[in-house]
Design a protein around this nucleic acid. Structure first.
Lengths: 341, 341
DNA sequence: AGTGAGCCATTAACCGGTAAATCAATTTCA
DNA sequence: TGAAATTGATTTACCGGTTAATGGCTCACT
């Protein structure tokens, strides 16, 4: 039984009052406007009888608020990046959103391919603010910042001093991973690097280089292989693992890629960790279940996402938190893929 | 530089025309209304100079369309259920949404605890339709159906003939898993069942019972243990695995629970599959990485989610597809946790 | 009897767009 | 030459709410 949409005017008519009165009763503006008990009763009754459901779009139009926040990923990430990482991120974001009484919207970015179009979509009024998971060289944040649109960057740093962001020290994370391998005696260490547009990927690489140099080792040409995702070409990795002075350890920029590397090594007949040590990044749930369990650098993804949403909500509600940058510390989750205790 | 919001009226004023003319130019209503080249030019120039961004909320109010679809999970699922299953589901849903030019909204359900409140939130005008991932006895779909609100159930069946749904044959899935174990010679098979509110969980259980009876075995009291999630109490499982006539196989209603069971067995010193065979459900990515790799019943989650969104979009756009029920077939992904080939 | 205060509700205006109907000025055609 | 058609825009009304200003009525007080 498809009913016609019931509006506040219908309720008003039925209750024999003006629609403003109905609005007041629904929103209970204590202290400002008084409505008699009798009228209230009649209005609630009309609401119930008619099955009235307030329209959030109309309300949003007057209040300029939707109580919805957007999660905006890089377009490519929506297609390729559905990993444990995204899962934990969404988990954290949605928890905090629930707590703060906001709904979550996932922008697909399908509205256009250039930044201006995307910015139009993000600022089209359907969300009060956005959590941005984007590449380092992405112009979207700049446009939003120019328009004063509340947003927080996550898993990257901002290029401007007035843009809030939540990041994890990736240089340190890369350093940590590499140092762990060095401490275990490895000297020839391959780094499987992420995309050159990704700030985290580049930082982890820098951490790797830093640790290597500190140990007096200059990473050779060929030790650093770009492998953004598990579906990336693994040929260069296979090649170097076949070379005479085969590397004894691999530091992958993400768990996904580490797992892919483990598969490749397995197919080549190499044992982990006896022949090659492997270390990943993110320490997602899957690390506990791989064979052997994957040692990995942990960043508190869930916590970071919550923090991002928390800051975003503050911005939306007009606060201006003093701390613009929130940088978490990575730690090492030692499991068995490196042969350590 | 926080600019004031630029509206269509500002653009009209700047271009020296009425706002309706601007609206026509933006939406390019070919054939209906003619606007001169000169006027068009002036309007686009004004739009560019002022940095005008159309307001989707205002547009939604007149058109009664937002080009957004909602994903509504059971409240509990948002807190506990962030598994590989949800990931694949969101992956599929978002792909199809992108293709159809819709954005995705995740309702947190925080707006109220009873079904009426949730229904109010879902039908508050922010989304054109909803994909429901809910328990079998959940009243939300009924309310939506009564109001003629477009929605599709996924991973459950509908109780009414007019409600569209996408499901996978869970009885068959349960049968398949159990039959596999029976064929391998097992006779004492434990079933770790999901929540009694979950249609899939109950069906898989029925499939299990059916297969057992077909093999002439009446499942004993205690062989069926309710274990909805990986954090559920595992004590009953431990107990039965310690009993004199220890079961030789476990069929878990989900991969998560199967993995938990493997951990428990491991801690008890039991080997998989030598001492106990384990089989899971969903065949999510993680099954490839467990030790040993987990044999599991596969349902095409990604495809099903796409199908759900596809149907939903049709409903939203006024079509009435003939096929109300879309039931996929489960298959078996044999890996190594059951000792089969 | 006039004034002020308190109570309860209403009217007017606005949020930012869109659809339908209308209109003025030309041009076309019988 | 006058009616009809075409062109290019405008006016009016509406979507479903909210906020601010205003208005009647009753009662108490002086």
């Amino acid at each position: 039984m498809r009913r016609e949409r019931v509006t506040i005017t219908d309720v008003a008519r039925k209750a024999g009052v003006s629609k403003v009165t109905v609005s007041y009763v629904i929103n209970g503006r204590e202290g400002k406007v008084r409505i008699s008990e009798e009228t209230r009763r009649r209005i609630w009754e009309a609401i119930r009888e008619l099955g009235y459901r307030p329209n959030a779009v109309a309300r949003a139009l007057t209040q300029q608020r939707t109580h919805t926040i957007g999660v905006v990923m890089q377009y490519a990430a929506i297609f390729g990046g559905w990993s444990g990482f995204i899962l934990e991120l969404l988990h954290g974001a949605s928890h905090e959103a629930i707590e703060k009484q906001y709904d979550l919207m996932m922008y697909t970015g399908a509205h256009g391919n250039d930044a201006e179009h995307e910015a139009n979509a993000v600022m089209d009024g359907r969300i009060d603010g956005a959590l941005l998971l984007r590449d380092i060289d992405d112009p979207l944040s700049d446009i939003l910042a120019d328009s004063g649109f509340p947003h927080v960057l996550i898993f990257t740093r901002a290029r401007r001093p007035d843009v809030y962001y939540v990041d994890c020290d990736n240089v340190k994370g890369g350093y940590l991973a590499t140092k762990h391998l060095l401490d275990l005696g490895h000297r020839t260490i391959v780094h499987l690097r992420g995309s050159s547009h990704s700030a985290p990927a580049l930082d982890r690489w820098h951490g790797y280089v830093q640790a290597m140099r500190e140990a007096g080792i200059e990473p050779e040409e060929g030790w650093v292989i770009e492998m953004p995702g598990p579906l990336s070409d693994a040929a260069p990795l296979v090649e170097i693992m076949r070379s005479p002075n085969r590397p004894t350890a691999i530091f992958a920029w993400s768990d996904d890629v580490a797992i892919r590397a483990m598969q490749v090594l397995h197919e080549m007949g190499l044992r982990i960790p006896e022949d090659v040590a492997v270390i990943g990044y993110d320490s997602t749930e899957v690390c506990n279940h791989t064979d052997p369990p994957l040692t990995s650098v942990r960043q508190p993804i869930y916590e970071m996402a919550r923090e991002g949403v928390k800051t975003l909500v503050r911005l939306i509600e007009g606060e201006r938190p003093r701390r613009v940058a929130r940088v978490f510390e990575p730690t090492l989750d030692v499991r068995r893929s490196c042969g350590a205790s």
